[in-house]
């Protein structure tokens, strides 16, 4: 068999690979070409706001516009799996730079029950 394989190597159908790669990349590019121009800026702003409260990586927040018939749906997905909640009031939350005279009480998550977002679907 080895000799046969050597004499008649199996040609990969590279055209099929080209076709599949093109289909995937173009589906992606067509979707982003139709998206409104402000999406990247919106995503950046949202990351900043969410980032004040939760430590998340850039790739954990996704903004999309989906279309279903006549309706456009702005879809914002924030992945919280593995996210770390920042302590509020301890120099965090720069959104409100003025010192707040009232003491902020934070409802601590109950350590016995897992927060809902940790659960996989």
């Amino acid at each position: 068999m080895r000799l046969l394989d050597f004499l008649f190597p199996e040609r990969r159908n590279t055209a099929a690979i080209a076709r599949d790669r093109l289909k995937i990349v173009l589906a992606h590019e067509r979707a982003s070409a139709q998206a409104p121009d402000f999406l990247p800026a919106l995503q950046k702003d949202l990351l900043e706001v969410v980032g004040r409260y939760i430590e998340i990586r850039d790739d954990m927040l996704r903004v999309n516009v989906a279309r279903a018939g006549d309706t456009s749906l702005l879809e914002i997905n924030v992945e919280l799996d593995g996210a770390v909640i920042k302590p509020v009031g301890n120099g965090a939350a720069p959104a409100n730079p003025k010192p707040v005279p009232v003491a902020i009480t934070v409802a601590k998550p109950d350590p016995t029950s897992e927060p809902p977002w940790v659960k996989p679907d």
């Binding site: 159908n13 590279t14 055209a15 093109l22």
Partner: peptide, 16 residues
């Protein structure tokens, strides 16, 4: 080259 599977076919390009 199309016959050898080395080049996109007409139908591939039309479809894409």
């Amino acid at each position: 080259r199309v016959e050898k599977g080395e080049m996109l076919t007409i139908d591939d390009v039309k479809e894409i």
